[in-house]
Design a protein around this nucleic acid. Structure first.
Length: 152
DNA sequence: GCCAACGTTGGC
DNA sequence: GCCAACGTTGGC
């Protein structure tokens, strides 16, 4: 099983939005970055766990945990000109972008802010904390996962 | 709102 | 295939 961290701007889509859905399941659409796409298309597996991270807000940090419940499939929002992430270069017969389905698992017992993560020496090598990292999806090692849970 | 760090685009 | 220009991300 793999661990991940997935960023979302809570203004656009927060963990509360996910929890408020009827099934607590939603698709993770809108990723338009090749590295993140490749991870969703090739590496994310059903049963994997991911931190739901709130970015571009005050304060940024980890809000909760989700399960991967459906593996990579074409992001249909790329086909729709009405969609904000429409991409005319992606089509149903030749999809360029992929997404997964996630399911709300739980909120962390308390929100763990980015500034706190930075202070934890066990997380020194975490991709999220690397200067200038903008990837919306990053792998998390088992050791990092446990270290973060220990901060709850 | 600023700006550093990247990714992408497109001219050559 | 190089690289400058441009756009985006996202912390602060």
């Amino acid at each position: 099983m793999n661990y991940w961290l997935m960023k979302s701007e809570p203004n656009a889509y927060s963990i509360d939005d996910l929890r408020a859905t009827k099934t607590k399941i939603d698709h993770w659409d809108g990723v338009r970055n090749y590295q993140a796409r490749n991870m969703m298309r090739d590496d994310m597996k059903k049963g994997d766990l991911a931190f739901f991270y709130h970015s571009n807000c005050n304060p940024p940090g980890i809000a909760g945990i989700v399960n991967i419940v459906k593996e990579g499939y074409p992001d249909f929002t790329a086909f729709d000109p009405q969609e904000p992430h429409y991409d005319p270069k992606s089509s149903p017969d030749k999809p360029r972008w992929y997404m997964v389905n996630i399911k709300f698992k739980r909120n962390l017992k308390r929100f763990i802010a980015l500034a706190e993560l930075r202070q934890n020496p066990l997380l020194r090598d975490m991709l999220l904390l690397r200067p200038g990292n903008r990837l919306s999806i990053t792998p998390v090692t088992a050791a990092q996962w446990q270290a973060i849970l220990a901060m709850e």
